[in-house]
Computed example of a mutant assay.
Amino acid sequence: MRKLTTLMALTMLAACGSSYSSDITGTTLSNLAGTYDLMTVNGSGLPMMVQASNPKIELVSERIVVNANGTFTVTTNRRNTTTAGAVTTNTLTDAGTFGSSGSATTFHFNSGTTATATMSGNTLTLVAPTSTSVYTK
């Protein structure tokens, strides 16, 4: 279950080259650096249903902190509701590295997930095989 939630939340990052001096669609790494909050996954806002029952799991929020040195951390907050109505929350964390090769910027998560990134203004979009996640700075 944790792997499914982490995969869903993190599938927006991509893995490619090892050079951290390139750009991401015209944005320097120092401009890419910052704190980004998840706004949508596949066009749906938060909270977002990850699992419908036993327990019901919702993605409540996610934050990516991108550093100019080519590293990042991710914090994902979930809400779990049992069939009896008991609610608990938990936080998942991950980290990794990112880099650019040519015009492609990719993020490698320590958990094994990768995603391709694009930047437009203050919006970071991460595209993974099963989802597209949009974050704002």
Rank of each mutant, 00 (worst) to 15 (best):
S101G: 14
V74I: 11
R63M: 04
S103V: 04
H108R: 13
L92A: 09
T106F: 02
T97V: 13
L38Y: 06
P55K: 00
C16I: 05
A104W: 08
V66T: 01
T114R: 07
H108Y: 11
A117E: 05
T81W: 07
V74Y: 04
T82G: 09
G43Y: 03
V60Y: 02
L13A: 11
T5V: 15
T118P: 01
Y36E: 02
V50D: 00
A9M: 11
S120H: 05
M48C: 03
F72E: 03
M48V: 06
V134G: 04
N67F: 10
T132K: 07
V65F: 08
L59N: 02
S22F: 06
Y36P: 00
T88P: 15
A115G: 15
R78D: 07
T82N: 06
F109H: 12
I57G: 02
V134D: 01
F98Y: 15
L46C: 08
T118G: 08
L59M: 10
T97P: 00
G102K: 11
A117N: 01
M49H: 00
P55L: 03
T91V: 15
T27R: 06
S100H: 10
F107K: 01
V134S: 01
E58G: 04
G99M: 05
F109D: 11
G43K: 07
S30W: 05
R79Q: 15
T27E: 07
F109S: 13
T83M: 11
A117H: 01
L38R: 06
T132C: 06
V60W: 00
A95V: 00
A128V: 00
T82S: 15
A84F: 10
N42Y: 03
A33G: 08
N80S: 12
T93Y: 02
T27I: 08
A52L: 05
Y36I: 02
L29P: 04
G99S: 12
T88R: 04
A115L: 09
P129K: 07
P129A: 13
V50A: 08
S22H: 07
A115K: 02
T116P: 02
S44R: 04
P47D: 06
V60M: 14
S133V: 10
L124N: 05
T116G: 08
V41F: 01
A117K: 00
T130D: 14
M119Q: 07
N77T: 14
S22P: 03
R2S: 14
T106A: 14
L10D: 13
G121A: 14
I24C: 15
P129S: 15
R2W: 02
V74A: 15
K3V: 01
N77E: 09
G96T: 03
